[in-house]
Amino acid sequence: MRISPDQMIFWEYGFININLTIVTTWALMLLLGLGAWLITRNLKSEIKTSRWQNVLEMLVIMIRDQIKEVGLKKPEKYIGFIGTLFLFIAVSNLLTIVPWYEAPTGSLSTTAALAISVFIAVPVFGIAGGGLKGYLRSYLQPNFIMLPFNIISEISRTLALAVRLFGNIMSGGLIATVLISIVPFFFPMIMSALGLLTGMIQAYIFAILATVYIAAATQEEKEIEGSGD
């Protein structure tokens, strides 16, 4: 029984291997990029717009407002990173309704990659927002005794982020597989619907946690602690 799509390898040369996770991600990238390009290549700034444009605008505005709500004053700066995080996870989870599709988020490698991206992005945005000194000072809050705890917290929350997403998606797929072997009819469908819901929630949580971490790093006056879900 295959747990991770990483195990299905198409091509291998030493350290380099092209597995199902990477291929599926490419397909998703193609889908998202092409879709966005198709819709946005003739955008209008009139009062009347096309339906697709309305959908995209709704989506983008929703993401932007969410980021703003968490406390980032200039959402346009972060929307590229956080929005893509959300869209990638959401789309990759939603597509599980497609038969024989295996979500790349069900691979620990992908979730780890995303978590590492957040782990790197937090200090990058922090330094970009408040300077190197300001960022480093945030580790000494409320005083220098807290420095090791702050570092541990930084690492552990990244790990938690990765494992949480992986566990949820992988378990969804796993439960469906197990249930199909036990109760072949009807029940797997409900589980699969549930899987869609948890997939969406995970996308939202992942994105919102990333936002909270970045907000915490960029604005010291805001005492937002990402203490998990």
Partner: peptide, 23 residues
């Protein structure tokens, strides 16, 4: 799979750029 991790990070960054550019 660490190669996959690296590949996914790169993929993600490319996607970020793509969506930023087109969306």
């Amino acid at each position: 799979n660490w190669f996959t991790v690296i590949a996914q990070i790169v993929n993600f960054l490319i996607l970020v750029w793509l969506l930023k550019r087109f969306l």
